[in-house]
Design a protein around this nucleic acid. Sequence first.
DNA 1: AGGAATTAATTCGATTTCGAAAAATGTAGC
DNA 2: GCTACATTTTTCGAAATCGAATTAATTCCT
Lengths: 378, 378
Amino acid sequence: MRTKGADQLALQGQALLHLRSRRASSRSSLAQSLDVSPSTAGLHVDQLIAAGFLDDSGRDQGAMGRPKRTLALRPDAGWFAGVELTAERVQAIQIDFSGNTLSKHLDFLPSNPTTEDAINTVTNSIKTLDQSNKSPLLGIGIGAPGLVDPDKGIALDHSLIQDWSDVPIVDRLKKQFDAAVVLENNLRAVAIAERWFGAGKDLADYVIIGPRSGFGIAIVQNGRLTRGAHHAAGEIGRWPWPLNGAKNNETLEDYLSAPAAYRRLAGLSNRGRLPVDLHTALAGLADTTGRFWNRLVADYARVLGLIHLMLDAHTCYLHGPMTALGPRFCEDVLATVPDAFPNLKNNSIRFTPSTLGDNAGALGAASLAMESWIPAPI
Amino acid sequence: MRTKGADQLALQGQALLHLRSRRASSRSSLAQSLDVSPSTAGLHVDQLIAAGFLDDSGRDQGAMGRPKRTLALRPDAGWFAGVELTAERVQAIQIDFSGNTLSKHLDFLPSNPTTEDAINTVTNSIKTLDQSNKSPLLGIGIGAPGLVDPDKGIALDHSLIQDWSDVPIVDRLKKQFDAAVVLENNLRAVAIAERWFGAGKDLADYVIIGPRSGFGIAIVQNGRLTRGAHHAAGEIGRWPWPLNGAKNNETLEDYLSAPAAYRRLAGLSNRGRLPVDLHTALAGLADTTGRFWNRLVADYARVLGLIHLMLDAHTCYLHGPMTALGPRFCEDVLATVPDAFPNLKNNSIRFTPSTLGDNAGALGAASLAMESWIPAPI
DNA sequence: AGGAATTAATTCGATTTCGAAAAATGTAGC
DNA sequence: GCTACATTTTTCGAAATCGAATTAATTCCT
């Protein structure tokens, strides 16, 4: 056969993406979803089966009529690597062709890490994932902290890794691995994980609130990530705090980041010593009541209300260590919103801890690799 | 010829849109821009010429080679109506097929208007525009205040017009006119006007700040309007103000709307009498200096900084009566941003009065009609 | 003036997609 | 078992698009 055109391959990629998200699908329902004729859908499905990506052995008998030949992705067709890099650690995940998690890997960076430390650890973690699999590596997704330029594949800036500035991380990894490499900001990668594996599956407009050592949000509007003109959308951790009359250049993340929240709940000072495992430490404070808890909740309620009025998201998902505080935290925050926003009907606001765990960033990075992959020309 | 398929007509519509935005274009450059082959582009251009929408008589000789046959829209092929409705008045504009303004019309609503008042005035204003033209009316765009559902063509809610709730304004107008009707929120229509006729021509990420009797922003990200999950994105006029510790449920629009700004600059109380022509009155205060001016500027700077960190827009455009304060207002606001955001490099923020005048809403509504129009099947 | 170089537009056979009809594969009722 | 019906899948001629080659229109160079 002649080499196939780019359009056809993109269509086949779309078909595979659709099959990953929907339970059971057939040639006819695929045709409807992708807005192509039944004949075209059938043709491409046959090609994907011949290429080993799909299996149509399943049957789905509806109420009447000829049963569907249900299409299933063949998990062994290949796998994707997802890596989330932060200044502290590297989390890697391996998902198979149908999106199931195969294995995970966790590595820690040395304190005050250099750019080479970071890249080497990322490289090694992918190699570790590779050892456990026979099928081919199809793509690598990287979630990196700070500002990133996904189009150019360059990590632009992050203060907590030495010399982490204009790092051409995609090119560096392409030299090491025979696979496509995609890059995204780690919190925005979480937003993609929420789309594929979380509760935000069918949402077009949602927000990820991801307090960690800093405080940022990832915004999805019209089903697409909002990046902004300089890749810096969602950097509200740099809002002054309190919003009117901040002292000493203090910002929102000095009050609402995960370490700050821990110190406030534990009654420690700004310089108070942090526990090694912030997640567990916060979990220990989950059932707190009293002044400290209420003040933190009130601050979060204020931010949530401001975000809601600005963006009108369907749901805001809380991610990261703060989820250790349990669902009560989000419930209390929601209940407190009307205190600061009296004229706001809070029944349209949703704020809930993500059901995805600590791997959301790595999982999202892998999802991005999965999203951007298309079959190779024959 | 057989009736043409929807895809072809959409492609021809896209071609016309592209020709409206670019100066001179040829079959070959159109093929590149629309990502189709030269032969397909040529075919459709020929059809559009035959249908009377295009003219290829122009020539454009480059440095070398065969000269381009430049394509120009035929202004007489039809026209679009754009209407901006507010609780006070109805502004209508007529643009020809190539996007040039042909005529304008202004009508005032009675005080405390009803929904029927509003719809009748809109209808009459379009009929008035119609009288001055021989070519066919191709589409109508409506910019309506408050929440609107563009997909269903329903104006959902606005407090300043009696019974303005779930108004099926698109259906109402379709019964009166033989043309397609599109609906959008009026401030979001302004954002579209900025794309077609303003400085934001090539921007994918920008924000319209439109203080009027209320205070809202229109957000464009990835080249698309951000509407939110309930059509309520950008409603930051309902932010409490001051942001921490607002008294008496006061909101941002109580301080930063156009009437509020006038009162503050003029040293009047919250109930101070408003001038009939707010625009002119504000223009008279343009060269003010002193405490009142500085406080207003500081408040705007705070809002601008918060928007900037959240959305990372390339540019924020000021629209509406506040532009009467002149470019100095925006300049002063920009210069004041670092006072509240010390760690923010203000060289990446842009804030400038729109070059579009008072008709921006109507012009944007007409642009929306223009954007959504496609040739009729043959 | 004439030929080489350059860019635009068109031609035409091959490829891809469409769309309606036909075939396939089941259930429901008698 | 047989017929009617419902639904999915495949078939096949028509329509649309592509892509490489050809033709067209101009400038540059000698």
